[in-house]
């Protein structure tokens, strides 16, 4: 007899799946706010504890939710667009572009008054991310059509150019700049303030809002661009919108917290394993799963070596790498042995 929670294709029924995901999201958010270097007793809230919660932990959890969902949804949308489960938001150049913008800002505006404002570096990062994505997109554009293969290859080329420039800038940085840069390049939520949340929320919300209605289009693209056109999809418009919206969401995420590895790559896999490949389920599920993963990873980053802190990118990479290997071995079981 088959369980009511599972459909015939071995997937979890959508209603059950989303209820579980939302419950897990609440648990993750509340526990992440509860843990940290300072022990908070909810029954006897001191003024210090109250300040730590409202000014440090809450903005940090909210930022984690925002950034995690941005990375999850963009990863799912780009994997759908490229029909490639190895696609990552970084592929279209947005992450390295944002890093380049941030690094350039730190190097140029280093000790100046501008660097002290919370908006300076995020804005430089957002500009860098969108600028490099635009360059990748322009390179791949031939006669009003964007060549998807060229888009990938141009992304790889510009990523490595950006990486090289970042390397040059970091080599010339002083110790203080280097510390800021390293933490930022590995990705960290430690700078979270309500101000930073405010600067990230607009691009992330706009990006996610533009990606969600693309679910049916991404399903059609599963047949490849030619057959998607035969089904009635305006392929070029869909591509432009997915690239632009992903760049906006990921740009908003990276500008606030730096580059965070693996969330955008593994979250869509988990979503598809649970609910199947329909993007109408995968996109929202990836948003929730991305938020859960990042908030939990950040909690781990805060307590693992307390009172010091790990960059959250280290935690996600530590979880993501082995998970990806597991996926690799799992998919191998399906084949007939040679």
């Amino acid at each position: 007899m088959r369980s009511i929670a599972r459909t015939e294709a071995g997937r979890i029924a959508p209603g059950v799946g989303f209820a579980a995901l939302l419950a897990a999201l609440c648990v993750a958010a509340v526990s992440a706010a509860a843990v940290g270097a300072y022990t908070v007793n909810v029954l006897h809230l001191t003024d210090t504890a109250r300040t730590i919660l409202t000014d440090v932990r809450f903005p940090r959890v909210v930022l984690g939710l925002l950034v995690g969902s941005a990375l999850g949804v963009s990863g799912a949308a780009l994997q759908g667009l490229f029909r490639n489960p190895l696609a990552d938001p970084g592929l279209i150049g947005v992450s390295s572009g944002a890093s380049l913008g941030a690094v350039a800002f730190v190097a140029i505006a280093g000790g100046s008054a501008l660097a002290l404002t919370a908006f300076g570096m995020p804005l430089a990062a957002l500009a860098g991310g969108l600028g490099v994505t635009l360059a990748v997109w322009r390179i791949a554009r031939v006669d009003a059509r964007v060549e998807t293969a060229t888009l990938l290859l141009a992304g790889i080329a510009l990523n490595s150019i950006a990486g090289a420039i970042i390397g040059i800038v970091t080599a010339r940085s002083d110790d203080q700049q280097l510390r800021t840069l390293t933490f930022w390049l590995m990705g960290s939520l430690s700078a979270a303030t309500w101000q930073l949340v405010a600067s990230a929320v607009l691009p992330i919300a706009l990006g996610i809002a533009a990606l969600m209605p693309m679910a049916r289009n991404l399903n059609a693209l599963a047949l490849g661009e030619r057959d998607a056109f035969h089904l009635g999809l305006d392929v070029e418009r869909c591509k432009n919108r997915v690239v632009a919206a992903s760049a906006l969401a990921v740009g908003g995420a990276v500008c606030a917290v730096g580059g965070i590895a693996f969330v955008g790559l593994i979250v869509p896999h988990i979503a598809r394993m649970l609910l199947g490949p329909d993007h109408r389920l995968v996109l929202p599920a990836s948003a929730i799963l991305g938020a859960i993963l990042l908030v939990v990873a950040d909690a781990v980053a805060r307590v693992a070596i307390a009172p010091a802190e790990l960059p959250v990118g280290v935690v996600t990479a530590l979880v993501g790498g082995p998970f990806f290997l597991w996926l690799l071995f799992r998919s191998r079981r399906e084949v007939v042995r040679a």
Partner: peptide, 11 residues
């Protein structure tokens, strides 16, 4: 089309 493929595990 002459060659057809489906990305992801759709039923």
């Amino acid at each position: 089309s002459q060659s057809r493929s489906v990305g992801f595990a759709f039923t």
